[in-house]
Design a protein around this nucleic acid. Structure first.
Lengths: 137, 137
DNA sequence: GTAGATGCAAACGCTTTGCCGCTTA
DNA sequence: TAAGCGGCAAAGCGTTTGCATCTAC
């Protein structure tokens, strides 16, 4: 009963947009979703992408991912609590499968702040880029 | 020699904008800076705020703080590496003085990602709000 | 006196909305 | 066939830029 699936139709546009998000290796911004979905449906308008993302969010089939200094990205829902890693070379955001700082939640800092949740993003090099930077010399 | 201080004038507007940022307990977004600076200089235009922030950034007198799902905030420079805490009640962003996860940098994850830097934001209740939620009943 | 700064308004870029013809069920 | 949907264009909204006026030095 989560979200509005009532009176909702299955269209090629929605199918393609969800496919693009599901097939990605990490969260995608609106522009990239539009770009990739257009390969299948060239006439696809940007407004439809925005409306579809809003619908998919309401249906809890995707989640919005906020990344520091970047536009909102989107990824499939249901992957639980996890964080993201950005490669400084290829500039791709990857999804991590585990939480690196599970101990933080529930603790209270000296300043009196009680931590109920956290957000972590990592930066560095992915293995592919690290390898090519060695072979490149 | 950091930034352009040459051919730069000291105006009341700039002085007030920097004062507002320095006096804040945490990073502020453009709108709030404008709002507070206007108390001193009512005619202050939003364009001047944007231009001044850009100048202060170039002079490395302030830094831009990216917070997940929020507009860019600004705080005084020179406070080193630290993170931010957002109170879910009063919705204020506070600055923390220490890094809670210094061990992350330099490590390589199983997936092959080499961590060179990290970004952490915390959510919860500040002591004032935690206290008032108790006395409120 | 003059280069630089401000304030206003127009321009921009991204997101949302309105409208109407098209499509799914 | 009808309600939902998509595409286009216009409207919003936050940020940037152009320009004429003002001001710090």
């Amino acid at each position: 009963m989560s979200g509005s699936t009532r009176n909702t139709r299955n269209t090629r546009q929605r199918e393609v947009i969800l496919d693009v998000i599901d097939a990605a290796q990490g969260p995608l911004p609106v522009g990239r979703i539009h770009e990739r979905a257009r390969r299948e449906v060239p006439s696809l308008g940007i407004a439809t992408v925005y409306r579809t993302l809003k619908l998919l969010l309401a249906q809890e089939r995707i989640v919005a991912v906020e990344l520091p200094g970047e536009e909102t990205h989107y990824e499939p829902a249901g992957r639980g609590h996890h964080h993201h890693f950005r490669c400084l070379d290829c500039e791709v955001w990857f999804e991590l499968t585990t939480c690196l700082v599970p101990h933080l939640d529930g603790t209270t800092l000296r300043e009196g702040f009680t931590i109920e949740g956290h957000y972590l993003a990592l930066y560095g090099r992915c293995s592919a880029c690290a390898a090519s930077s060695i072979t490149a010399r």
